[in-house]
Amino acid sequence: METSEATFITPVVPMDFTYNYRIGPYMTRYLEGFKERKILGSRCPACGRIAVPPRKYCGVCNKVMEEMVELPQEGTLENFTVGHVILEKGQLKAADAPYVLGLIRLDEKASLLLHRVEGVDPSRVEKGMKVKAVWKEDVEGDYGDLDHFEPA
């Protein structure tokens, strides 16, 4: 039996769920580092690689990472994309202006850190650029303290 299109409705459920995520000791340490304008990572005792932000396990070695290390504030842009859209609550929308997201290497052994890259024309961004961290004026141990990176 075919049903005509008119008999269907599109309900939009006016419901927002609230979750209380515990961030755990590693992410807590990372955000505490922000208060001193420090970027911290955790080092795997087996392979020596550094996870930024820090976390408990190195999945490759199945080892608990206990050692915290401070990373330099300057690094290399390893990969980037220029965004022309944004995703907001699962919906695709046009961005107000093109913006740059970069994967940044702060240390040879460290994982790449994803961040906004500002202060550069999106059409002139290049892999291998040197970039440095820019902090908010008042750091308070929040995710937004490390505001963006800019050309060094």
Partner: peptide, 20 residues
């Protein structure tokens, strides 16, 4: 379970249908 709300989660089984 402390990170979500299980009663809301359970209501979520059916709420969209009810709204519709």
């Amino acid at each position: 379970q402390s990170e979500g709300d299980s009663q809301v989660g359970l209501m979520g089984i059916i709420t969209p249908e009810i709204m519709a």
